[in-house]
Design a binder for these strands. Sequence first.
DNA 1: TCGATATAGTAACAAATGAAACTAATGTAC
DNA 2: GTACATTAGTTTCATTTGTTACTATATCGA
Lengths: 150, 150
Amino acid sequence: MPSNRKRRLRLQDYLPYRLSVAANAVSRRIARAYEDRFGLKIAQWRLIAVLADEGPLTQQSLCGRTLMDKVTVMRAAQALVRRGLLRRLPNRADGRSHRLALTRTGGRVYHDIVPLALEHEARMLRGMGAVDVARLERWLRQLERTAQGP
Amino acid sequence: MPSNRKRRLRLQDYLPYRLSVAANAVSRRIARAYEDRFGLKIAQWRLIAVLADEGPLTQQSLCGRTLMDKVTVMRAAQALVRRGLLRRLPNRADGRSHRLALTRTGGRVYHDIVPLALEHEARMLRGMGAVDVARLERWLRQLERTAQGP
DNA sequence: TCGATATAGTAACAAATGAAACTAATGTAC
DNA sequence: GTACATTAGTTTCATTTGTTACTATATCGA
């Protein structure tokens, strides 16, 4: 384990910095690709991905699934509804909310974007074996947990 | 290597998503810590770290070292100068720029913040061996490169 | 040496983000 | 059942962030 008795620190080798820079580079790249080809923001793509995978959900549930806050989800949903990729179904169980569902057009967009998304993932993992990938995923999840922790 | 012939994709297991979420969680956590204890933003901390490590530099050089754009660097520098943690030295070689240097107070802040920074790093790496850490660093740098690439 | 072009730093503006207030519906305690 | 508190969704507003335009200096090429 790294000692914290050092007096100096090289930003270039400092892990939180490297993580932030790498993650931002990846996000930017993907955001640009989605924007260019589909006119979608990352938040919008996330809603589509979750709804395609799980079926209709309330905005509240989407917050939980995507870890985005409710305002972000709301704005993304609004834009998608306007574009006709999502529609709002009434929610019998709770009059305050509605369930968001992909339209047929939304489903097509999903179908078109998946290969691109997977390509980006593959590119990120180029040259890594399955063991490394698993290690990596574990690390990212652990990171998230400890960052949230006390 | 992951096939890109799949039709579906689970956001929870999608690497760019996991990376983004993890990196944001870490950034937020660290940002809060620096803000609370030192009143510093991440950008400001980065300038301090680089200047402590390398000595006086122009804003332009700081852009290269921190991978932040010139406006971000400018604003961070301005705030630090106002607070008396940095000062501007004239630049003989080029009248358009000045060299930014830590003041004595700035140096003290750096000295105080380093243990906290290293603690955060150690926490991120808890339970990982040196080999894993090296693997990780390599991956992050590779990621950055390929995200920039064509 | 002079005119054109490029660069460092700054300023001004526009878009994205996040926190808090607000509204309508629901749930709870008595 | 009625008051009180809570929750889902939306709106509003302040802050942050990024893009573009501007100014002063420097560099390049006749």
